[in-house]
Simulated assay, not measured.
Amino acid sequence: MSTLLLRLAAPMQSWGISSKFDRRTTNMEPTRSGVIGMLAAAMGVSREDSLDAFKVLKFGVRIDQPGTMKQDFHMVHRENGSKSTAWVTYRYYLEDAIFLAGLEGPSEFLAELKSALMHPVYPLALGRRSCPPAEPLVLGIRDVDLLTALRQQEWQASSWYQRKAKWQHITSLEIVRDAGLDENGYAVRDFPESFSQKRRLYHFRNVIREQIALSQLIDSENTEKKQEVPTEHDPMELLEDSDVSIKNQNQ
């Protein structure tokens, strides 16, 4: 078995399990159903298609940079003949969160998923359509099991959060993963059977939570060299280049 690693980062994410009606909540970490939905979109799987191909995958996430929960509201309008009604609905999001997600499965299938994520059929989103992922999304395939991959991959948090974690003496990260057959976890209704809008269906899965020491990630010699991800944007950069070209023309 191998493990496909994804970096789930964006200004906003939302991973709901029990959201209903006018209140759409979010978990504090990505859900299996949300990530499988993103994979299905990348592969061009429609809502009415079977999800059996994804059942073989083991799923887990490492919370590298916990997000801050934010509440937003939307005004919903409904036309009923000559009358129009409106009401407020609430949406919850995670702001500035970064997660390391892993999917363990057959190497050939993981290679298909990797290719699909890099050339998606449908737009990708982190839980909701309004939350597109930031790059890099795909970190690659590791020839190890899920838990080993989550324990070995270098810390993905932003540099400013790593400094904050040092000041606040944060020494560990949390891993949330599918429980093994011989492990005692807790049940969450987060195993997608169907995304059909006529009848969405989710089963329960057993989940384990555990901690991993940050020192183990930082000092590990098995991790690949970290790729620096630009997180700062200079809105004047293009104008500065234009100014230089104009000055050269005037000289």
Rank of each mutant, 00 (worst) to 15 (best):
L137D: 08
Y90L: 13
V207L: 04
D22C: 10
D190W: 09
Q65W: 13
R142D: 14
D72N: 11
S158I: 10
R128S: 06
A125S: 15
E240W: 07
L217I: 01
Q249I: 02
Y202S: 06
V244Q: 07
I212A: 03
P123E: 10
N250I: 11
Q65M: 13
I98V: 15
A40G: 03
P120S: 08
F21N: 11
V207I: 15
Y202L: 15
V76F: 07
R23E: 12
Q153P: 04
P11S: 02
A9V: 10
I17T: 15
A111P: 00
Q152A: 08
C131S: 05
V176P: 00
M75C: 07
W15L: 07
I17R: 15
K226P: 02
E112R: 14
G140H: 08
L214S: 08
W15A: 05
I208W: 00
G44T: 04
F54H: 03
A41V: 08
N27D: 13
E232Q: 13
D190P: 05
I141D: 07
S46K: 13
I17Y: 10
D52Q: 12
I218S: 09
K83L: 01
N222I: 02
F109Y: 13
V121P: 01
P120I: 11
R23A: 12
N27W: 14
T25L: 13
D64G: 01
Q216H: 08
Y202R: 11
D72E: 15
L39P: 00
V244D: 06
T148G: 05
T25E: 15
G185T: 05
K164R: 10
P235C: 02
D234G: 09
G127W: 06
A116I: 08
M69T: 08
E193F: 09
W87A: 03
